[in-house]
């Protein structure tokens, strides 16, 4: 079970937020591409991109929350996170996706696809962790 309650959506998901890539380039959050994450992780000494596949999406403990179960990395380690419906994840080759694209668009003006079971999300782990 998830260990903590969902956190409020942080400000950097608001459309127009300025994001700095690992090479110093600045982009708006809505303009980020899969390659930006991959390239940034490649030149990071500490962080590694993992593929995290959505395996289940269940209701959370509060009305606006969901519990998402991911299979992380090559070993498909099971990780659950509880987040707000509007929390966006970046899906490989697709872009921002959330469990409630309407809410994400309304609250943050960030265009989203619907996050579905089987989607493969960008996630991070520390290099060297096993």
């Amino acid at each position: 079970a998830p260990s903590s309650s969902p956190v409020a959506l942080p400000p950097f998901f608001m459309r127009g937020s300025i994001i700095q890539l690992a090479d110093g380039e600045l982009k708006r959050v809505e303009d980020l591409k899969t390659e930006d994450f991959i390239h940034s992780a490649e030149i990071s000494s500490e962080l590694k991109i993992d593929s995290s596949t959505v395996e289940r999406i269940d209701d959370g403990q509060t009305p606006n929350a969901v519990v998402i179960q991911f299979a992380v990395g090559e070993l498909k380690a099971q990780v659950c996170v509880e987040v707000l419906l509007e929390y966006p994840f970046f899906v490989f080759g697709q872009g921002w996706s959330s469990c409630s694209p309407d809410r994400t668009t309304r609250l943050f003006e960030l265009s989203c696809a619907k996050l579905c079971v089987g989607d493969v999300c960008v996630s991070l782990t520390l290099r060297g962790l096993r």
Binding site: F13, I19, L26, D36, L124
Partner: peptide, 25 residues
């Protein structure tokens, strides 16, 4: 084309969930 001075700049990794499969299961 992007003015960084008067607006906050967030690091790219802030946007990515940190899913570390190292917790006890």
């Amino acid at each position: 084309n992007v003015e960084p001075r008067s607006v906050p700049v967030f690091p790219w990794h802030s946007l990515v969930p940190f899913l570390a499969p190292t917790q006890s299961d």
